[in-house]
Design a protein around this nucleic acid. Sequence first.
DNA 1: AATATTAATCGTATATTGCCGATTAACGAT
DNA 2: ATCGTTAATCGGCAATATACGATTAATATT
Lengths: 117, 117
Amino acid sequence: MSDTKNDPFATHVVELADLAKALGHPARVRILEVLAQTPGCVCGDIVAQLPLAQATVSQHLKELKRVDLIQGEIAGPRTCYCLNSKTLTRAREMFTNLFTGIGCCQSEGEVHELESE
Amino acid sequence: MSDTKNDPFATHVVELADLAKALGHPARVRILEVLAQTPGCVCGDIVAQLPLAQATVSQHLKELKRVDLIQGEIAGPRTCYCLNSKTLTRAREMFTNLFTGIGCCQSEGEVHELESE
DNA sequence: AATATTAATCGTATATTGCCGATTAACGAT
DNA sequence: ATCGTTAATCGGCAATATACGATTAATATT
């Protein structure tokens, strides 16, 4: 997808990058928030809360579905969207691992201490 | 009361999406890992550890610099790259907020009841 | 000054993304 | 069966992203 050759990146790197890519658009981040807030997670409701056309929102939903961050259940003529907590947990773990794993670079082996939040 | 059709995305959403976009390529995730592991964080060292040409790596470094996840310090003819712990911490907070903020949906496969209108 | 080295940038080609209007498919209701 | 509604997909276009070789700018060494 990214380069034409065999991609020689580790699987966890590819997986994390793919998840990040899916989160790499304001509309898609917003969609996740909307799905978390809205009891009825119907596509039309999402469209109504985004400044984008229905076709565009549908594409963003497709991208979120691709990485399994959301699921779509057909309910009559509508589609009810739902967060996938399993993938969300997986994503959270991967991002946490990344951030805690890379610490800081000041001097070799030394981990930068983080200010308390 | 806001008209969501005409309003732009909230700043925190844009900021998070922008960080995610910067992490949305295996090469850039890998660069962060390399910078965390490699004591001397010189550009050439990074290039040596990636399956990409120097010009391409330079572009990825530029993207990471754009969102301030890394810093480049000119050291003679070389450039010493360094993780920016401040932005990393900020990013970790934002991702954590996203994941914990949206919690989870229902159990997998289960669909919300539709509200009649 | 001349040369070697490093890394950013240029130029370019290709692929992907983002956006929308229009269309289609699926479904409920009449 | 027809109509209206919903949402996915199609077609097309512009913008962005990715990749690389070639070039340039900066510096260190000789």
